[in-house]
Computed example of a mutant assay.
Amino acid sequence: MGFWSEIVGQPVAVEMLDRAASYEPGAAAPAHAWLITGPAGSGRSNLAYRFAAALIARSESDRDRVFAQVKAQTHPDLGVLTTQAAIIKIDAAREVVTTAHYAPSDGRYRVIVIEDADRMPEHTSNVLLKAIEEPPERTIWVLCAPSEADLLPTIRSRTRLLRLVTPSIEDVAQLLQNRDGISPERAIQAARLAQSHVGMARRLATDDEALARRQDSIKAALSVHTLGDAMAVAASLAKIAQTDADALMDRLDAREREEAMRGLGLAPGAAIPPRLRSQVKALEEEQERRRKRSLRDGLDRVLTDVSSVYRDVLMAALSTAEEQDLINIEFSRAIADLAERWVPEQALQALDAISDARGRLMRQITPGLVMEALFARVVMIHNRVIDAHRKVQM
C-alpha cells in the first residue's frame, strides 16, 4: 500500500480506512463521520488527511495528485477546522459547517477534517453536533483527538471510532531510513529520544541543532538541586524552548508556503495572481497565529523531554530497566545516580509536577511562572529525599 506507506505502526487503521474509501462498484458508502484518536505522535492528522484524499480521489491512481492538494489545504473539496489558540472558536465552526453543505466539485466526496476536536468548548461542539446529526449526502467528517473522552458523548455516539496506537521505535526508525535516507544508528536514536513521535523523530534525525537543544534540556533538568538551580534552569529551558520554536516555525512556514504555491500551480518565487492572493493571505494569517502560540508549544515539547528523564529515573529506581530500555541512554550514569538517591514515589511526584505544569500552560498561565513553579517543586521533592536519608543515618 504505497499511498499509506508513511503511516507508521497502524496496519489495522490503514486497512479499515482503505476499505472504507473503496472504489469498487456497489461498495457500501463510508460512515458519514469518523473519530480518529491516539497519543501525540501516533499520526492522527496525517492519517486523517490521507483518508480525506482517498475519499475525494475518483480513482486509486488519482490519490497522490489529490493528496498533494489536500496536504497544502488547497483542494476545493476539502474543509479544515483547526486552531493555533487554546480553543476552537464558535465562529470558525459555523463557517466550516456552512461549507459542509456544498456539493463536491471535483471529487467523490467533500471531506471536513477537524484536527483539534478536543479543543472545542461545549458551545462550539453543539454547532458541530447539529451538522453531524443531519449530514449532507456526500459530505464526510473526520475528527481527530487524543481520546474519545475529550469530546461530548453526543458527538462520540454519531461517529465511527478508530483508535491508533503508539508506533514502535523500530517502525519509526524504519520509516526514517526508507523515506529520509537516515542512517540506521541515527534513526534508532531519534525514534527513541522522540518516544516514537514520528514528526519529532524526523526532526531530531535531520536537524543537529534540534538534537543539541534536546540534550541541553536533559542536562539542565538533571542539574536541579537547589532553589537557585530551579530558577536558572527555568529561564534556561524557556530560552531553549523559544529558540527551538522559532527554528521550527521558520522551517514549517517556508515548507507550507512552498507546498501551497505548488498546490496552486505556481513556481517558487512566482508572482501571485490576484485571484489566488486570498488563499495565500489566509495561509500567512494562520502562520502568524501559530507563531503566537509557538513558545507554549515549545515548552510543552521541552516538558515531554524532561518527563522522559523522570520516567527513566522511576524505571531505574524500580530496577525494572536495563540501560538499553532507557529513553535517555546518553545520560544513563546521571539517571542511575539520581535513582539511587530517590525512591520511586519521588520520581512519580516529579512526573505529576510536569503533568500539572503542562495543564497550566494550556490554561494560558505565564510560561515563565509555570517553569519556575515546576522546578521549585522538583527541588522540594529532592530535598525531602535528602531529609529522609539524613533521618535514616541519625
Rank of each mutant, 00 (worst) to 15 (best):
S5K: 06
L17E: 06
D18Y: 08
Y23V: 13
A28F: 06
P30Q: 03
H32D: 03
T37E: 05
P39M: 13
G43S: 08
G43T: 04
L47E: 02
Y49S: 14
L55F: 08
E60H: 01
D64V: 10
Q73H: 07
G79I: 06
A92V: 02
T99L: 09
T99K: 08
Y102P: 00
A103R: 12
R108K: 13
Y109C: 09
I112N: 05
V113Q: 00
V113E: 00
A117C: 09
V127P: 00
E133W: 10
P135E: 09
C144H: 00
A145N: 01
S147F: 08
E148K: 14
A149V: 11
L152D: 05
T159W: 01
V165K: 07
V165D: 05
S168W: 07
A173G: 13
Q174T: 14
L175K: 04
N178Q: 14
R179K: 13
D180I: 05
A187E: 01
R192V: 14
R192S: 07
L193R: 08
G199L: 10
A221Q: 05
T226A: 10
A235V: 05
A241I: 09
D244S: 15
A245G: 10
A245R: 04
R251T: 08
A260Q: 05
L264F: 06
I272E: 11
L276D: 05
E284F: 12
R290I: 14
K292S: 13
L303M: 01
V309I: 11
M315D: 07
A317V: 01
D325L: 10
L326G: 02
F331P: 06
R333Y: 09
D337Q: 15
R341G: 11
W342L: 15
E345K: 12
Q346G: 13
D352I: 03
A353I: 00
S355T: 12
A357R: 07
G359M: 04
Q364L: 15
I381R: 09
D387L: 15
Q393R: 14
